[in-house]
Amino acid sequence: MAGRFAGRRVVVTGGGRGIGRAVALAFAAEGADVAVLARTKEQVDAVAAEMAPLGGRYVAVSCDVGDAEQVAAADRQVTEAFGGVDVLVNAAGVFTMGPSADFPADQVNELLTTNVAGTLRCCQVFGRHMLAAGAGKIVNFGSLLSFTAFPERAAYAASKAGVVQLTRVLGVEWAAAGVNVNGVAPGMIRIETPHPAALAEDDIVARIPAGRRGAPADITGPVLFLASADADYVNGQTIVVDGGWLSYGYL
């Protein structure tokens, strides 16, 4: 199938819904062979069914990125199907919130295990194919809370700030090996299971210079750019895709 990513082998974690699903389908529409990873079989099977008419190869893998054995098993399945990996998109993540003074330790551990350790683990496991080949693209997912703060989101914000710093370190460490590691930080995106809001919906929209919440499709373009040859000289950067929220000084 013709397309910018024809013949490219892409792994998308967190690809079962929301932004991850949109990213997986965007790569498939551009001719890529896509492995979709998500926690539940129902999610990955549904996305695989959407990719089937697009003509490329696809693999649906149930995988919790916080579990090292599951990530290793997913790598074996992807390698068997595609023979390697050219692009990795780390869209998997979890969100919980609560008062910082007594935020439960088990929830802190889940956030750090999935969002930070899981992202690093996938970079290591799938990135080894790229390092061996001397070429590849990795796109990690940060958040507005990588850079700014909302109340009662201490552990989540710390995890997403960690992803941005991880992206910087791998970006500079692996650049000489031909592997570009970058990230995107979505703003207020309208998805099917939104995070609890710190503001009323009208106040959220009023705070966004673009005048609307984003959609998953607003994130796919920046992701595909960072995964393309157009970004060969981009290393360790995180693009904030938020309609101008972070830059706006309005209170």
Rank of each mutant, 00 (worst) to 15 (best):
W174F: 09
V181N: 00
A185Y: 08
A217G: 05
V169M: 14
I208N: 01
V205Y: 08
G142V: 09
A117P: 02
G118N: 01
L145K: 02
L112W: 00
G142E: 06
A210P: 02
E152L: 10
R207L: 13
R207Q: 13
G178W: 01
A185S: 13
A206I: 08
A157K: 03
A198N: 01
L120M: 15
L144Y: 02
T114D: 03
A198S: 10
V205W: 04
R168Q: 15
C122D: 03
T119D: 04
R153H: 10
V163D: 05
A217S: 15
P186I: 09
G136Q: 02
L112S: 02
A154Q: 10
L166C: 04
L199H: 13
R207W: 13
S146G: 08
P196H: 09
N180C: 14
E173F: 14
I191H: 04
A101H: 15
P194L: 01
P151N: 00
I191V: 15
N140G: 02
E192S: 09
P194R: 08
M130L: 11
N115P: 07
L166Q: 07
K137Q: 07
L166I: 11
V108Q: 08
L170R: 04
G178K: 01
A175N: 12
A197W: 06
L144C: 09
Y156C: 04
G118W: 00
N109S: 14
R213S: 11
C122W: 03
Q107H: 12
A197V: 11
A197H: 12
H129R: 07
P216Q: 05
C122I: 02
T148Q: 15
L166H: 09
I189W: 07
L170V: 13
Q107A: 02
T113N: 14
G211F: 09
T113W: 06
D102K: 09
I204L: 08
G187S: 06
P186G: 03
G142Y: 00
A132K: 11
T167V: 05
A158V: 04
L111N: 02
I204A: 01
V116E: 07
F103Y: 15
R128D: 07
P104R: 01
V116T: 01
P151Y: 09
W174P: 01
P196G: 09
A117S: 15
L199G: 10
H195W: 15
T193L: 13
A215L: 15
P209C: 05
V179T: 00
E152D: 14
A177G: 00
A175V: 11
F141L: 04
G187H: 04
A155D: 06
D202M: 12
L170C: 04
